[in-house]
């Protein structure tokens, strides 16, 4: 039996009076890529931001239901948010490296989570993290250079390396390729396939071909509801719900 890394149970979320998530139930399996698709405003990014409780930062947000990560309810008042966000990392639409050197970007998180790290431990972590996003060979001699001078693709890889350095288990990606050209997109997608051997990856994307290409499972959301969640191959060849069918064939709207 495949165990669920993340289980969502009867999840509802309101932004003040507006209900953005309606009774969402599903599970995400470890070492798989799950894609969330749906029209703008359907709640897919909101859902993604509940996994690391980023919505807590927005005023007027109210949540009920449960999200269990490794059987632990993340809405439990005793939940340690720093620990949660170490376990669940987020990659954004536009890469957002800190205005620091490449090296400092990667060790930034580790310095927050652990003090008194020795130089050689940090060096090792930088090497491992950059290798895992296939940037090491390109950047090993330029670690002191400002991260902001990298290409968009390199910045996005660096942001992923920065997450990996703090040893997360879940990677959330919100439109991670929308700022990239098709070739850079293809390389990030290749990287995602490499990374899924170690992490549980959930990606939000407007690009349905991308969802079809990279993900194992796909969920379709509409007006705050998770309409259908299943194997990607089935969702794109034979969806069960007519609303899913209408959306992926472009009949929606």
């Amino acid at each position: 039996m495949i165990s669920a890394k993340i289980a969502i149970k009867n999840l509802n979320l309101w932004y003040s009076d507006f209900q953005a998530l309606k009774n969402v139930n599903t599970t995400f399996v470890a070492n798989k890529i799950s894609a969330m698709i749906g029209p703008s405003g359907c709640g897919k990014s909101t859902l993604l931001r509940t996994f690391d409780r980023m919505n807590d930062l927005i005023e007027g947000v109210r949540v009920d239901g449960q999200i269990l990560i490794d059987q632990e309810n993340i809405f439990d008042p005793k939940m340690d948010l720093v620990k949660l966000r170490k376990k669940v990392g987020m990659v954004f639409q536009r890469p957002n490296p800190f205005p620091l050197s490449i090296y400092e970007n990667i060790v930034f998180g580790e310095r927050i989570h652990k003090s008194n790290l020795k130089r050689d431990q940090l060096d090792e972590s930088v090497e491992i993290s950059l290798k895992s996003v296939l940037l090491w060979e390109e950047l090993k001699d330029k670690l002191k250079k400002p991260a902001l001078r990298l290409s968009l693709e390199q910045k996005q890889r660096l942001c992923i390396a920065r997450l990996i350095a703090v040893k997360p288990e879940v990677l959330l990606m919100d439109e991670p390729c929308s700022a990239l050209d098709p070739q850079a997109t293809a390389r990030i997608e290749e990287l995602m396939r490499e990374l899924k051997n170690k992490y549980t990856i959930i990606i939000v994307t407007h690009n349905m071909q991308q969802a079809a290409r990279v993900s194992d499972d796909t969920g379709f959301m509409l007006l705050g509801e998770l309409i259908e969640f299943g194997h990607t191959q089935e969702i794109f060849t034979a969806p069960k719900d007519k609303r899913t069918e209408d959306y992926i064939t472009g009949r929606y709207g």
């Binding site: 349905m208 071909q209 079809a212 794109f236 060849t237 034979a238 899913t244 069918e245 992926i248 064939t249």
Partner: peptide
């Protein structure tokens, strides 16, 4: 068009 679902079928 990269059709999907019933269009693809």
């Amino acid at each position: 068009f990269q059709p999907m679902a019933k269009d693809l079928r």
